[in-house]
Amino acid sequence: MTDDRWVPPPVLLTVDLVILTLRESRLQVLLVERGVEPYKGDLALPGGFLQHAEEDLITAAHRELSEEADLDVETLRLEQSGVYGAPGRDPRGRVVSVAYLAIAPRLPEPTAGTDAADARWQPVDHVLSGDLELAFDHRRIVEDGVERARVKLEHSALATAFCGPIFTITELQEVYEAVWGIPLDPRNFYRKVQKTDGFIIPAGSARKSATGRPARLFKAGRREVLYPPMVRPSESSNAKEQ
């Protein structure tokens, strides 16, 4: 009598981290230079295998981020952004990766450790355009993470965290332009911001702008979820409006 019991295929589990911040008015992603095979010397997202069967996924994500880039994980709010398990995505075997995303202001320079030869911030647009090649399927993971971050700016007040305590509408607009990757019409942007009650509130006297005109000052309001949302214009419709 044959044994027809089903035997599950061997599957390895990893975590990968998409960490985004704004530096020099550009959206940037944390990348490491791999110090081990496969893809030794190539750029990749920080991440790695679970250490043991009892390790929780979020614990593994925090550990890998600390080990590979020496970032203070307590300052980052990680959220799952996707699961990637296509056959052949990793030459070491059938590997499924759970991706985590964080977008936060004023993150420090990373320091490489463990199996990373280097760690540094890189402009997101260089990754999305293909100018920077990434190991495995990490470009797709970055693409999905960036799109998720862009949606977060549509529906939450996250953008104000990237401004100072007091800011101008222009400074807030620059955050949206950096994350969304498109230029925005100032008049339309101002109108959308003003339509969302509690998003930003006036903060006293004006500041002299580059044009010589005084620019009104604002600070973040109490509203965390934006309604109506700050919907992204398409590049074509935004060009027509301008």
Rank of each mutant, 00 (worst) to 15 (best):
Arg5Asp: 05
Trp6Ser: 12
Val11Ala: 14
Asp16Gln: 10
Ile19Lys: 02
Leu31Ser: 06
Glu33Phe: 02
Val36Met: 09
Val36Pro: 01
Tyr39Glu: 11
Asp42Thr: 12
Leu43Asp: 07
Ala44Phe: 06
Leu50Met: 10
Glu55Pro: 01
Asp56Ala: 13
Asp56Arg: 12
Ala61Ser: 05
His62Met: 10
His62Gln: 13
His62Asp: 15
Leu65Thr: 07
Asp72Val: 05
Pro87Met: 04
Gly93Ala: 10
Gly93Val: 07
Arg94Leu: 14
Val96Leu: 13
Arg106Val: 03
Arg106Gly: 04
Arg106Tyr: 03
Thr114Ser: 15
Thr114Trp: 11
Pro123Arg: 03
Gly130Met: 10
Asp131Gln: 12
Asp131Met: 10
Phe136Trp: 10
His138Asn: 15
Val146Met: 02
Glu147Met: 11
Leu153Glu: 04
Glu154Gln: 12
Leu158Gln: 07
Ala159Val: 01
Thr160Met: 00
Phe162Gln: 04
Ile166Trp: 08
Phe167Pro: 00
Phe167Cys: 00
Ile169Asp: 09
Glu174Leu: 08
Ile182Met: 09
Asp185Arg: 02
Pro186Trp: 02
Arg187His: 14
Phe189Val: 11
Lys192Ser: 10
Lys195Trp: 09
Ala203Ser: 09
Ser205Glu: 11
Ala206Cys: 08
Ala210Tyr: 14
Leu217Ile: 07
Leu217Thr: 13
Ala220Gln: 03
Glu224Met: 13
Leu226Lys: 02
Tyr227Thr: 13
Pro233Gly: 01
Glu235Leu: 15
Glu235Asp: 13
Ala239Cys: 08
